[in-house]
Structure formats: C-alpha cells, structure tokens
Amino acid sequence: MSARLDLPGTLSGIKRMAPLSLFVIVFGLAFGVAALQRGLSGLETLLMSALVFAGASQFAALELWGPQIPLIALIATTFAINARHLLMGAALYPWLRHLPTRQRYASLTVLSDANWAMAAADHQRGETNVGMLVGGGLAIWLAWMIGTLMGVVFGSGITDPERYGLDVIMGCFLLAMLVGGKRDLSMLLPWSVAALSALAAMAWLPENSHVIVGALAGGVAGLLVPGKPQKREASA
C-alpha cells in the first residue's frame, strides 16, 4: 500500500465532488446571510469561510458574536465541534504517511466530512491516489466560498433551507458513504456501540461531545471484535 498525490487524481476528485458542491453553495449562502445579520462585515464573513472552512463551527461562532467576543468560549466551541477531524485524520494516517510530509499536512488543510468520507472509501478499495481528499476538498472549499460570496452580495435568498430538505443532504451523503463501504459484519458491534454512546453523550455530556465520544467508544469496541488474521482496511 502506498499513496501519491498528482494533478489528474486531484482533478478527478474535483469532478466527483461536483454534484455535492452545488448543495454546499446553498449552505454557504445561508452562512453569508446569517453572518451579515449577526453584524459581521462582508470581508470578515468571506475571510472566516476562507480560513476556517468548517460550516458547523462557523454557524456556532455567530452565536458568540456580539459587542464583545468571548475568546475562550470561541476556542472551546470551535475545538469541540471540529474535534472529529482529529479522528478522521488519524483514520487516514495509514494512507497519508506514504506522502511526503509537506504534501501530507497541506492536504489536511481541506479535510472536511464529505471528501474525507469519499477518500476513506477510496483508501478502503486499495486506491493509492489521494486526489479525492485534495480535489474533493478544493471543490467544497470553492463552493463554500461562492456560496458565502452570494450570501454577502445578495444578502437574502434561501434563508430556510429546511423547507427544501437541504439540511438532510449531508446526513444522507454521509450515510451513503458509510453503507457504500466494504460490507463487513464485524463492524456491527463497534457501530452499535458508537450509536448508543453518541446518544448517551448527547443526553448527559457537554454539548458537541457526542461525535468524539461515539467514535472513540466504537474504536474501543473494535478491539473486542476478534481480528481476522489478514489485513483489514478502514470501513468508512
């Protein structure tokens, strides 16, 4: 198993992410509109989308925005919502370690849920080209920026994406990626543990901790499943 990053692979990643990117534009638009309403300037809104590039944490930051911005709360919230990236990155490590260090850490700047899920599926199929991660990430970043810009410029538009079912797209996408991976019944136990732990964490633990708790619990449960003697690949 090795890994490489090249232009054709990256372009193919962009192409494969194009359909979902259209929906990302809508989310970006919603963020742009919401940010202006919270008192951010157009420039600040665009800068946040460009540099942070993590929708859920950006929306959460808007809740903290005001005459005074509480720095510690901002850091804690951003970290809690984005901490799932830590686990996603760790899961791709067996693949990314074959890349030169610079490429490895540059690729991670565009890591997000959707391109990670598709890249993890590629890795699982034995694909050596990490273009899906980078190309897919670039496509989402670009769509996120276009959407934010449209929101900033037009200032209105789709303010209730719920009505059109747009809010469930990401859930459906991630579910399709999860089920589309290699069928492996030994994952039923860890995944069930993950589901229950996430729900328990949501009920009893601090806000935004449920993804980390569920993922770690699922990982620990995976240690209980008797390993097959041959090499197994990631199941996402």
Binding site: R84, L87, M88, A90, A91, Y93, P94, A117, A120, L174, L175, M177, L178, G181, M187, P190, W191, V193, A194, A195, S197, A198, H210, V211, I212, V213, G214, A215, L216, A217, G218, G219, V220, A221, G222, L223, V225, G227, R232, E233, A234, S235, A236
Partner: peptide
Amino acid sequence: RFINAMAGSVLVA
C-alpha cells in the same frame, strides 16, 4: 483495529 472501527464510528456518531 481501533482505527478501522473508529473510522466508520465517526460517521455513525
């Protein structure tokens, strides 16, 4: 094994 189980568990969670 931990990583493999965790990868899908992120999405499940």
